[in-house]
Design a protein around this nucleic acid. Structure first.
Lengths: 118, 118
DNA sequence: CAGTATCCACTATGATACTG
DNA sequence: CAGTATCATAGTGGATACTG
């Protein structure tokens, strides 16, 4: 049994899910394998709202998985996000997650492929 | 862009998280690498409530990841859960998730190890 | 540009008690 | 034994408008 900030995680698996679970975290992390600006990230994470992206980025930063760097002092701002060394240890896992998604596509006939509706 | 039952998933990664995301799914799945009865599973997934376990199992069954078999017609019931062939394709990923949890334990000093309080 | 503020809906999770 | 029913709460996600 483990705990972080008084929340309990019964096993290694639940510990990992604390970091990458939820609807968006893994998606954000895989896009941040390459350092990226906020606006680029938003375009790539289709459907995510600014509010949600912002909240998730903050959590990931607090969890020590990524680093936020501000390059300008006045608007327009330039902010970049990138994985920390700790975050980088997730890269193989993130690739494995993406690969299984591709695999699932072949095996599960309930998954439909939609056209890019722009 | 993919969809399952009219819900949208923008990439492979989000597709995978649809199947194993959430607080408990990955934990349940990794315990079901070996076929197991409901009561065994409940003991092993510490802290989970019966209601939540029940709901999650139903979702996993609907998603085609596991199979439920009832062995008795009257109470006391004997029910076993096991991975389907599709579910078994997740096994390497589940192991990878558990391994990263162990790794994180070494790298992240915010993670505390609690005694088994029983 | 990179967010925050506000308000709201929906989903997930939980506690407890009960049943075929 | 293996759940379901009921009620309650917390967390996540979303729409829209606004700001340093």
């Amino acid at each position: 049994m483990y705990s972080i900030d008084d929340k309990k995680y019964p096993c290694n698996t639940s510990l990992t899910m604390k970091f990458i679970g939820g609807k968006w975290k893994a998606v954000i992390l895989i896009h941040l394998i390459e350092k990226k600006r906020y606006s680029e990230l938003r375009k790539e994470c289709q459907n995510i709202t600014e509010r949600t992206l912002s909240l998730q980025l903050k959590e990931l930063e607090n969890d020590g998985l990524l680093k936020r760097t501000v390059y300008t002092s006045k608007p327009p701002l330039k902010v970049e996000y990138e994985l920390t060394d700790f975050g980088k240890t997730l890269i193989p896992l993130l690739h494995a997650i993406a690969s299984w998604g591709e695999e699932a596509l072949k095996l599960n006939k309930n998954i439909k492929v939609l056209e890019e509706v722009k």
